[in-house]
Design a protein around this nucleic acid. Structure first.
Lengths: 123, 123
DNA sequence: ATTCGTTATATCCGATGGAATATAACGAAG
DNA sequence: CTTCGTTATATTCCATCGGATATAACGAAT
């Protein structure tokens, strides 16, 4: 999910996550597919969850991030607003900048990490 | 919990959080108090949880972060290793650098945020 | 030997989150 | 008016997480 290995960045609003890697990817996929459900399918996420994330996004910001239409041709759909696109773009840029800023630190840190014997969750 | 308003940074090992704001704070408190349970009390965290986090930290890195002693004077205690101190220091430095690198972006983003009507969790 | 506070560990339980499922509403296309 | 795929919403179920609690082990100090 994280675009940069070893780094996860989230932007908070009042200590609650406003946008992070997951929402950014979701909005990107909605933009690509024109549908919340299609984006959810691609992320192997339940429609309900994806819809909740979209709801949270729209509630977090002044301008809507995703606008939806119900019924009609192909049942409806979802469109990412210009602001939504800008939001994702900005967030990706932040990931880039942050990653650059601490790249050497991350390398050092990862050199201190134990590789194999990490108890991973079962499939 | 996040030291910088609007930013949360986590360092991942194989997509699992190796260190983040919570563990960093916990290690800092263990260093200050010399005890896992005292640190947990200060963070209003159950001892079990704190102990699990310490276990995860020690499992994530080659060198131990916290070493513990059982029994004896005052029942035992926990000591943050030199590496542990360095780890926290490095992580804090990463937060600083990342925060600086994206400060203007965060300002822009927060200007787009809806302030009051965010459904906050109940106490 | 007793005391004491801590680490270590197990067990139980409640809250939370998310998946799965079902259903309704919708509106353009045919 | 029927069809169709989607949004929207409620309901149910289950896994996971963490808090609460209890207990054992420990070892220095008394």
């Amino acid at each position: 999910m994280a675009r940069y290995p070893g780094l996860m960045l989230r932007i908070l609003a009042d200590d609650h996550p406003a946008i992070g890697p997951g929402k950014a990817q979701l909005v990107g996929l909605i933009d690509a597919t024109g549908s919340i459900s299609a984006a959810a399918r691609e992320m192997r996420m339940s429609y309900r969850r994806a819809w909740q994330l979209v709801e949270a996004l729209n509630a977090s910001f002044i301008e809507p991030v995703v606008v939806t239409a119900v019924g009609g041709k192909r049942g409806g759909g979802a469109v990412v607003t210009a602001f939504g696109r800008e939001l994702v773009k900005q967030f990706r840029a932040m990931e880039d900048k942050a990653s650059q800023a601490i790249a050497t630190d991350i390398e050092w840190l990862q050199r201190q990490m134990r590789k194999p014997p990490r108890p991973q969750r079962r499939k």
